[in-house]
């Protein structure tokens, strides 16, 4: 929806609840269980992304073919400028490809409108960032509730699911704390809870251990391992080889292309 006139947004907000309510599946009943067989979550074909930096055109991605099926734990690595951030943004529906086709859980998101992409981010993607990106003035519980608020859930259901998500990451006793009252590891756990609370198809983590010491980082990676064991699809973007080693599959990007795609031992 690339319109310059903002009143159009107001109209669409009135339709917001109708669109979203009911689209967020209840916990344990998500899209990945709809069908008996394994679902292909990410299907990318010939994905290209071109940026314009002034008059220069930068080919960040030059033809990516990528399949990630439900339940996989994928690490995405590559040197700076390899295009891994760009690929992550595309996977996370924060951006649209210049060319190519991207099916996320079966639906084509490569040409979706802004509002539709927001909806996909809300219910299909759970983001975990290097810098946690929690809202500073909100409690842990409120931070975790935010995606559900944008999903249009009622307050009681929201509270129940946010509480459950925080319990799942081991923060049952920190719900009323604000981010500045918590350690880095705890903040990242809140962020993981926030990512999981909508029961997303993909947990998309961008350097989740980058701002943590090794021990705390490992505890986060353990948490990821547990989530993977319970069937959560995880895509982990990192530049550290030992972090990537935690994943089951390791994709290396170089110069906008996939250089290698191996299963980890």
């Amino acid at each position: 929806m690339k319109t310059a006139f903002p009143f159009v947004y107001l109209r669409s907000i009135l339709q917001a609840r109708r669109h979203i309510v009911g689209r967020i599946p209840a916990a344990g009943n998500s899209a990945k269980h709809w069908k008996g067989h394994t679902l292909m979550l990410i299907e990318m074909r010939g994905i290209e992304k071109v940026y314009k930096l002034g008059s220069e055109r930068v080919n960040a991605l030059r033809g990516i073919d990528l399949d990630v099926s439900e339940g996989e734990y994928v690490a995405l690595t590559g040197p700076s400028g390899s295009g891994k951030s760009t690929l992550m943004h595309l996977i996370g529906c924060l951006d649209s490809p210049t060319a190519g086709r991207y099916l996320l859980a079966g639906s084509d998101v490569s040409s979706m409108s802004d509002a539709a992409l927001a909806r996909v981010r809300n219910r299909q993607i759970g983001f975990v960032f290097q810098t946690f990106n929690l809202l500073p003035r909100a409690t842990a519980l409120h931070n975790v509730e935010i995606p559900l608020i944008y999903g249009g859930l009622g307050s009681r259901e929201r509270r129940r699911r946010a509480t459950a998500a925080l319990e799942r990451v081991g923060l049952a006793d920190r719900m009323k704390h604000q981010p500045n009252q918590m350690s880095g590891g705890q903040r990242q756990r809140v962020a993981v809870a926030r990512a999981l609370v909508t029961d997303p198809s993909i947990l998309l983590a961008d350097e989740p251990t980058g701002n943590l010491d090794t021990a705390t980082g490992n505890s986060i990676l353990e948490l990821f391992a547990q989530l993977h064991a319970s069937g959560q699809t995880i895509v982990l973007v990192t530049h550290e080889a030992d972090v990537a080693a935690h994943a089951r599959r390791h994709i290396v990007l170089r110069d906008g292309k996939i250089e290698s795609d191996d299963a980890n031992k």
Partner: peptide, 19 residues
């Protein structure tokens, strides 16, 4: 700006930010 980015990543549409 950052807060807006977070909210957008979590699924806030333009209209919500605008409002």
């Amino acid at each position: 700006t950052r807060e807006i980015g977070i909210r957008k990543a979590l699924g806030a549409r333009r209209s919500i930010i605008l409002l």
